[in-house]
C-alpha cells in the first residue's frame, strides 16, 4: 500500500475515530487496557452474542497510533465471529512482532505493516488488541 495512503487512513482514524464513546449497557463486556511503559490508556467494550461480535466501542487517552489502531480494529472486527476475530488478532500480533502473517486476513489493518520500524510504538498498536482479546477470553470463560 502507498505510504501516503496509509498515513491518510491512520490520520483519518485518529482524528475521527470509529465508535468512540462508551455507552451504558450491561450486555457489553468492558475492559481497561493501559500501557505501563508509556501513557496510552483506553477502555474497550464489546457486545458478543451467539459467538459474533455484534458491537464494540472505545474511549480513552492515547497517541495517534494507539487511537487509530483501536478505531481500525473495531471497524474490522464488528460483525465477525469470535473465531474470525481470533485469526485477525493473531495475524495482527504477528505482523507487529515481525513474524509470519497472512495480510489477506487483516483488511485495513495492513496500514500498520511498517510500525515495526518504530519499536517504541509496537505496544501502542497492540494495546487495543490486548483489550479485545481479554474480552473474548472472559466471554469464553
Amino acid at each position: 500500500m502507498d505510504e501516503k495512503l496509509k498515513r491518510d487512513i491512520i490520520l483519518e482514524h485518529y482524528q475521527n475515530p470509529y465508535h468512540r464513546g462508551l455507552i451504558d449497557d450491561d450486555r457489553y463486556v468492558r475492559v481497561n487496557s493501559r500501557n505501563a511503559s508509556c501513557v496510552d490508556n483506553i477502555d474497550v467494550m464489546a457486545l458478543i452474542e451467539n459467538g459474533v461480535i455484534v458491537d464494540a466501542r472505545f474511549d480513552g487517552e492515547a497517541c495517534a497510533i494507539c487511537t487509530s489502531a483501536t478505531s481500525v480494529m473495531l471497524k474490522t472486527l464488528i460483525g465477525k465471529t469470535v473465531e474470525e476475530a481470533e485469526v485477525i488478532i493473531a495475524n495482527f500480533n504477528n505482523m507487529i512482532n515481525e513474524q509470519e502473517y497472512d495480510g489477506s486476513k487483516l483488511a485495513e489493518l495492513n496500514v500498520y505493516d511498517t510500525i515495526y520500524r518504530q519499536p517504541n510504538r509496537k505496544t501502542c498498536a497492540l494495546l487495543p488488541f490486548r483489550a479485545i482479546k481479554d474480552i473474548i477470553d472472559s466471554k469464553k470463560n
Binding site: 508509556c38 501513557v39 487517552e61 492515547a62 497517541c63 495517534a64 487511537t67 510504538r121
Partner: peptide
C-alpha cells in the same frame, strides 16, 4: 496533540524530551 506524539515528533529533530505523567 497527544504528548507522546509531540515528543516523537521532536525526536525527528534529535531533541530528547519526555512525555507522560
Amino acid at each position: 496533540v497527544f504528548s507522546q506524539d509531540a515528543v516523537i515528533f521532536l525526536n525527528r529533530f534529535k531533541i530528547c524530551v519526555r512525555s507522560g505523567n
